[in-house]
């Protein structure tokens, strides 16, 4: 287990390093930083002075190391547009996106796991077909379209839910559904497949042969084993949701990092974009690392592989 963990952590660190190099490159590719920092009404001398002051005349490797050092200390530089520290802006907006991601994931799990279990219990029954149909339809609906439709039905026509903003928990219901729906097909299929595999296994057959009641078998034995890969998938999906929340945050006017990322892209505020790419990627790396370790802990077979 320790050897596996060490190997896995090394991989995660290496990935984090590569991602940081890519995000560093993103900002450098976006144009002359010194000019951007100096602003419009600046003279050539101003620009040169800034270039020196910020070390932009140094070789790229030196610049990268300095930048990476600052990032590790939580300093992502200042936004070109807001002229505020990017770290402070992220600290304000990341909770919104995290909350959205978490509630979307909860929605997806609450919908997909029971459906997957029931579908696996009765393969080819109407409920199995319904679950599969939902999965196939879910994969084909454009997310922005689905979000707008939710808004028309629940916000405008029925008036059950507030349309935009972050004031109360109700504000998160529609965005969570719109975002979470896309994770349900994958989670459902995986739960179904896992359950079918486990139900066919010897120890479940033995348990059933011993005359244990079906719910006991289901929850005490089968689900616990079938759920292991689902945990890993959920972690991965959470990472995807953080990155995929741009469209949803824009439509529901949630001022999280997705919205900030898009706004920053349209106004070429690359220090912000860079920081968001880096932070989201790092969260993803940590999540998948934890999921893998948890999996290995729960399922000894993985450690050997």
């Amino acid at each position: 287990m320790l050897a596996y963990a060490a190997k896995r952590i090394c991989l995660a660190l290496l990935v984090a390093l590569t991602v940081s190099i890519i995000s560093f490159g993103l900002l450098r590719l976006s144009g002359d930083l010194a000019q951007a920092l100096a602003g419009q009404s600046s003279t050539a001398a101003d620009v040169e002075a800034l270039r020196k002051a910020y070390g932009l005349d140094q070789p790229l490797t030196v610049q990268y190391l300095e930048w990476a050092g600052k990032v590790l200390a939580g300093d992502f530089g200042d936004s070109f547009f807001f002229k505020e520290p990017v770290a402070a802006m992220l600290a304000q907006r990341l909770p919104v996106t995290m909350l959205l991601g978490a509630s979307a994931l909860t929605f997806a799990l609450v919908l997909a796991v029971p459906l997957g279990v029931v579908a696996a219990m009765r393969p080819n029954s109407w409920i199995d077909r319904l679950a599969l149909t939902l999965a196939v339809l879910g994969q084909a609906l454009p997310s922005f379209w689905f979000a707008l439709m939710l808004m028309i039905v629940f916000g405008l026509t029925l008036r059950w839910l507030p349309i935009s903003g972050t004031g109360t928990w109700q504000h998160f219901v529609m965005p969570s559904i719109a975002l979470g729906y896309y994770a349900t097909p994958a989670i459902m299929r995986l739960t179904r497949a896992g359950m079918m595999e486990v139900m066919a296994s010897d120890y479940i057959r033995t348990a059933r042969a011993k005359g244990l009641r079906m719910p006991t078998v289901l929850f005490k034995h089968a689900l616990r084993n079938a759920v292991i890969p689902v945990v890993a998938l959920a972690a991965v999906q959470f990472g995807f949701m953080l990155g995929g929340s741009i469209v949803i945050e824009t439509i529901f006017a949630l001022h999280g990092v997705g919205y900030l990322a898009w706004e920053s892209i349209t106004r070429a505020d690359f220090p912000v974009v860079q920081a968001i790419v880096l932070v989201l990627a790092s969260i993803y790396v940590v999540l998948t690392l934890l999921a893998d370790l948890l999996n290995a802990f729960l399922d000894p077979r993985i450690r050997i592989a």
């Binding site: 349309i163 824009t250 439509i251 006017a253």
Partner: peptide, 11 residues
Amino acid sequence: RTIREANTQFA
């Protein structure tokens, strides 16, 4: 409030 989407404003 800043709301980028016109539809969201109309709604």
